[in-house]
Design a protein around this nucleic acid. Structure first.
Lengths: 211, 211, 211, 211
DNA sequence: AATGAATGAGGTTTCATTCAT
DNA sequence: TATGAATGAAACCTCATTCAT
């Protein structure tokens, strides 16, 4: 989310700033597009540069290495999913409702950011060193968010307790993560995102609700 | 470590064939292991060769290109899942039962072949030309197998019909495909595969069953 | 950190000139420090700029190319050694005494300017074209300074003549040039420059004096 | 010194071996030649490859990185100078004689291997990590070899003791290391190596001998 | 004077693949 | 079958230099 830069009376500076902003975002956007398609390893800096419209050497003004570019994409995605979690938690709903709302919001985000999500779920392994360590934490935090609600839901008897909470957690996690594949295929008629999300939430709800 | 090749008293042809076979399987096995870990694009022929215990150039006696090696891995996986489907269909059970049994058998296979499954679900995009066309068909067939049962189940009222069959199909597909991630994580206690599969089948069943 | 430029009450022109001078010297100083350490070829303009505290592009206000920066460093060093020579010659001492005094003064300068000396003796090869031609002359002149005294010393029988003057010259040259390495090493006790210079002069004197 | 590979009756294998040997040596030789001329940092793998007559990628059969190539050159030089030291020590001569013989032999080697010596004395700084550590040891050992004899010579009164042994050591070291520059210059008449070495030994001897 | 984005050339390295032995 | 040297293309990255602002 680029912060608004409404400027009055200082048009030149503002223009420059906006331009820079766009260029920086352009690079990320181009990288997301290519990497989602071909995968991180098969994506060349060259291709990203072409899409941005600069020479490959010039890209290194925006990031210091290919891996850092990947990291930034992943980090942004992570931040946005944290934000969603924060918003949902703040509503202070009962566990099952919190969980299903979180599932809903995440699904909406994944469907609106399929490429980002693809990269997030398949390219993280290419991080190394400190970046790898940082990213490993994200996955855990993510699982924790869901796990917490599942445990609370089992405690207040809104969620079935005949299945271990960790297995329930992974089931839910998998269902949400996979929603990004639902719209694909050259099906005759495409489903709109609302229909998909409604179906997903209904299915997940019915599967985990205490009978 | 090249195995000693001295064969005495044993039919030479047979021995040779068996050896060939083993070596061939070794190559596939090595490739699966490395590619599951690092991804197709980041896997070098060199690494596969090292794991097999031969030199890079020698691998080309077993396959004609890196892509063909990938294709063979994917094809084998496909064959094995077709076989599972065939077995389940032959039992001639009612749709919902067929579906859940298929889910169960597939899950068992995925859990027993996590590396193969990883490759199957993430590296197919690296195929090109004819091989790509062939592989695309596999995915469709796979989805069809499930879709057919869903449609039949909706017809005989064993499966809920308030949700479009295509969405149900993708939900089920996603749940099964994701089961390979359930055991991972350095959890204090690992779940055995039976527990995982039972949970998955219960959850999927409860979510799609007509109420 | 760009220094504040507000000048009040001070003649603007003078201040500006001094500043310019300082900044110019800063650049040379920074370059000497980095190049002595890593060598000309491995030194990036970037690093020099960082040490000066400006951005890469800004350095080009002070010199027109990296090679010119090197040339200026070398030229300055050359000028300073010429100055030393001039001073010694003006004393109009006998050849051997002139020679040893020159050795002494040069050594003192080298020890006080180790980094400059390092660059002078190892990076001259990176000059090209006219600059290379100019620099080649310096080396010859330098050798000539010593050679002249050796020849004169042999003529007046103060310097041994059982060894060809050119060999004596190179021996002396080498001894002086190498004195810059004497203080290095993390020896328990460091020698002060006076002790080093005294030793060097004594050794050179005893080796070339006519017996 | 390539070990003799006289083969009788197995000509093919031998030829192959010799060829490989040569190619390996060729690479080192080409690298020495270029690096001595332009310096390590300014030498491109490309140039070395051209001189060898292969494509640049092919060079990586012979070493794993440019730095390793440098390391090998330096290591070989080090080994050869150790060998010289060993031979001289084995003669078990008095300290001053040992020292002067060592100076002589080293000088002969430097004059016969000017390019190697150039690299040894100017490019070591480009090593990093473990290689740097290893190389740092060489320099110390080298200095120690001379230092030991100086100390012993002062003890038996054959070497002057009015100058600290460390200073004497560095003087000697510098004199020897610099001998590689003596023949250079487009002088009208070149000195043969014997004349140079004789002069050097005489000069060093006369400078350090106890009076 | 200073900036910093952009260039374009070149550098090191990797790698799938071929082929003579 | 196996080898391993060689290829050639392409990858990531660096850097001196320019230029509009």
């Amino acid at each position: 989310m680029p912060t608004a830069k409404t400027t009055q009376g200082v048009p030149v500076k503002a223009a420059k700033t906006r331009e820079r902003f766009n260029r920086d975002d352009n690079v990320i956007a181009a990288a997301i597009s290519v990497m989602s398609d071909k995968g991180y390893a098969s994506t060349s800096i060259q291709e990203v540069a072409e899409r941005v419209g600069v020479l490959k050497g010039s890209l290194y003004h925006y990031f210091s290495s290919k891996e850092e570019l990947l990291y930034r994409i992943l980090e942004e995605s992570h931040e946005q999913s944290r934000e969603i979690h924060r918003e949902v938690i703040e509503l202070d709903l009962p566990p099952l409702e919190t969980l299903l709302l979180y599932v809903r919001r995440l699904s909406v985000w994944y469907l609106a950011n399929v490429e980002r999500a693809n990269i997030f779920f398949t390219e993280m392994k290419h991080l190394t060193g400190d970046r790898q360590v940082a990213a490993a934490g994200w996955g855990r935090a993510f699982e924790r968010d869901i796990s917490d609600q599942v445990v609370a839901g089992q405690a207040d008897r809104s969620i079935r307790d005949d299945i271990d909470q960790r297995l329930l957690t992974r089931f839910i996690l998998g269902a949400v993560n996979n929603v990004r594949f639902w719209p694909s295929r050259r099906s005759s008629r495409q489903f709109d995102h609302d229909a998909i999300v409604d179906a997903l939430v209904a299915l997940v709800g019915d599967s985990i609700r205490a009978s």
